[in-house]
Design a protein around this nucleic acid. Structure first.
Length: 590
RNA sequence: GGGGUGUUAGCUCAGCUGGUUUAGAGCGUCUGCCUGUCACGCAGAAGGUCGAGGGUUCGAGCCCCUUACAUCCCGCCA
């Protein structure tokens, strides 16, 4: 490693210990904290590597005036602390530097918020002064951990035999998926580049070019509204492989992801197996396509139990095509009435349901729903719930009921303390439908995922003749603790199959050539069967660091929720000349 | 595009049913004191258009309307 010594320091603020006692050292760093005792003054000096206490015996008027976060250089002698003065909280706590002289390198103004401590501050202020925010212990640590994980992932991919590539950032807009960021072209009047939503077509092209195994830690851009778990620009561990089947691709995730978690979260309890769950099963049992397997609650379909029952609201709705989903709440029978009322309020307010029926199984079945049901039906429901538990019912059309049940399942998991945050449960979700009904086109088939994935059929004949809604995609997601961390699959590398798929999805044949011309052309000249996937770096890293959804906590310079960078002032206006150069005229706001 | 929540000192927040004179607290800042602190301590001071505008009222930080901004969610998206 390159030496950290310079004219500013002989050591860092994190390395001095009892072995250095007696040495004359020079340290440089930020004034983390001052404790002024008059003619005795303590300064905690901080740099990237740690904190060292420096003592000024006799005081110093100039130093007393130095504000926190000023940068100073101190020279002095390392001395052992008295036994009762040792600070076990920091690695340098057995020594201190008896300062002999100091220089102020730069002064700090009064701070907009404190670097020391962990007082909460608004995002607005934190982003405006991100350089201060990044000095704070937690964020500084997060960023460094992210660095380490990136290197680990890169090394791992090399070790697994992948080659690393870079692909263009100024590329062509493609019609699928999210909205692209556009960059106007100066040389080509009225034309635009698009920033890639993912290097999808390039990585497939590299397969056609015969590179066999590709990876890239790729920047991706999507011009969509933001959330806590979404960024305008984010990174994917993107990979693609030739001559593979689904398990060959998934093997990468099976090897890399659990090991990454174990390496960087030594206290983690990583579940030993990674189950495969079909999309249909996930929607039924977990009420979403990204189940959190740490939560033991399983949703059941109880439509048949309520069909023809005395509970008229449900029975009638079932006759009109609704389903009933049951969400058990283990060991909740002795919860007070208010607990159930609050969940009812959650169901109507947050989930938009008409109400939330439930039965409490405390030896007897209790609640308004139970009164309307006969003993046989009650017994079946009790089998699902278990004694000392309660069972919540959601009755609606299948999609609505499934999703609402999923949200209730998540809420119950948290409320009942069933989810351990240091557990890490991976799963694969697969067997996605290839087509879904498009309501805007009268329920005609449309691509469910992207048009790149391969339909699971044996022949073009089968593709042509089968009910399109029964066809599954060679496509999978990897899910960690209820977070979708990866999406991938086998690609549609066969031009004839591709054309047929577009035809079923209602596109004219020319659309294939127009929208995917590069790739479509490439496939005319011998394309290997190939597939791959991409892991969302920020999501994985934030989950490992235990900061959950808030993906911006591991990005050094994130945009705020409105896509602005308050520190650099982006997006900003440009000069008339710059607009002219790229042939742009700003429209009136409409 | 829609909805929830919020906006009071530099920061984090309290402020009751609309009525205690000068709107409070902690942290920070400034001044003074302090030789063993490590969230140092003690004494004092400065610091507020209560987001903005309008309305109701004898009286508004508090109620109503408009608006701006922030944040979270839905749509959208990975």
């Amino acid at each position: 490693m390159l030496s950290l010594k310079s004219k500013y320091r002989t050591h860092t603020c994190g390395e001095l210990n009892i072995a250095n006692v007696g040495e004359i050292v020079t340290l440089s760093g930020w004034v983390h904290r001052k404790r002024d005792h008059g003619s005795l003054l303590f300064v905690d000096l901080r740099d990237n590597y740690g904190i060292t206490q420096c003592v000024f015996d006799g005081g110093d008027e100039n130093l007393e005036k130095i504000r926190p976060e000023s940068v100073i250089k101190i020279t002095g002698k390392v001395v052992a602390r008295e036994l009762d003065a040792i600070n076990e909280k920091i690695p340098t706590g057995h020594i201190e530097v008896q300062a002999q002289k100091f220089d102020v390198l730069t002064n700090a103004e009064v701070l907009p918020f404190q670097v020391f401590g962990d007082e909460e501050t608004s995002e607005e202020l934190r982003y405006k002064y991100r350089f201060l925010d990044l000095r704070r212990e937690k964020l500084h640590y997060n960023i460094l951990m992210r660095n380490k994980m990136m290197k680990w992932l890169r090394d791992k991919m090399w070790d697994l035999g992948f080659s690393e590539f870079q692909t263009p950032l100024l590329t062509a807009d493609s019609p699928e998926g999210a909205r692209s960021f556009l960059v106007p072209s100066r040389l080509h009047h009225g034309k635009f580049y698009a920033l890639p939503q993912a290097p999808q077509m390039f990585k497939q092209m590299l397969q056609v070019a015969g590179f066999d195994r590709y990876f890239q830690i790729a920047p991706c851009f999507r011009d969509e509204d933001l959330r806590a778990d979404r960024l305008l620009e984010f990174y994917q561990l993107d990979l693609e492989m030739s001559f593979v089947d689904l398990p060959d691709i998934q093997a990468v995730g099976e090897i890399v992801m659990p090991e990454l978690v174990k390496t960087f979260a030594p206290d983690a309890n990583v579940y030993p197996t990674i189950p495969h769950i079909s999309y249909d099963d996930a929607m039924l049992k977990y009420g979403c396509d990204k189940p959190d397997l740490r939560n033991p609650i399983l949703i059941s379909d109880v439509t048949e139990i309520f069909r023809g029952s005395e509970f008229g609201i449900f029975a009638n709705a079932i006759e009109n095509g609704a389903v009933v989903r049951a969400v058990p709440a283990p060991n909740s029978a002795d919860r007070p009435r208010s607990w159930f009322d609050k969940l009812g309020e959650y169901a109507t307010k947050e989930l938009g349901l008409g109400g939330l029926g439930y039965i409490v199984f405390a030896d007897e079945a209790k609640g308004p729903v139970a009164k309307k049901l006969d003993a046989a039906r009650i017994a079946k429901l009790k089998d699902i719930a278990g004694n000392k538990s309660s069972l919540f019912f959601i009755c609606d059309m299948v999609d609505v009921a499934a999703k609402a049940a999923g949200k209730l399942r998540n809420k119950l998991g948290v409320d009942l303390g069933l989810v351990n945050p240091r557990d890490f449960a991976f799963c694969w979700v697969d067997n996605f439908p290839f087509f879904e009904p498009d309501p805007e086109r009268g329920g005609a088939p449309a691509f469910t995922h992207n048009p790149f994935s391969y339909p699971i059929v044996d022949s073009i004949e089968e593709l042509s003749t089968r009910d399109p809604f029964t066809i599954k995609a060679a496509q999978f997601d990897m899910v960690l603790n209820g977070i979708e961390i990866c999406s991938g699959g086998l690609r549609n590398y066969n031009p004839d199959v591709m054309k047929k798929c577009f035809e079923i999805a209602g596109y004219p044949l020319e659309a294939v050539e127009k929208n995917f011309s590069g790739l479509y052309t490439a496939f005319q000249y011998g394309a290997p069967p190939h597939g791959g996937c991409a892991f969302g770096i920020e999501r994985v890293v934030s989950e490992i660091l235990g900061i959950g959804d808030s993906v911006r906590e591991i990005v050094a310079f994130p945009a705020n929720q409105r896509g602005q960078d308050l520190l650099m002032g982006s997006p900003n206006e440009v000069s008339e000349q710059q607009l002219r150069d790229v042939h742009i005229k700003i429209r009136e706001k409409n």
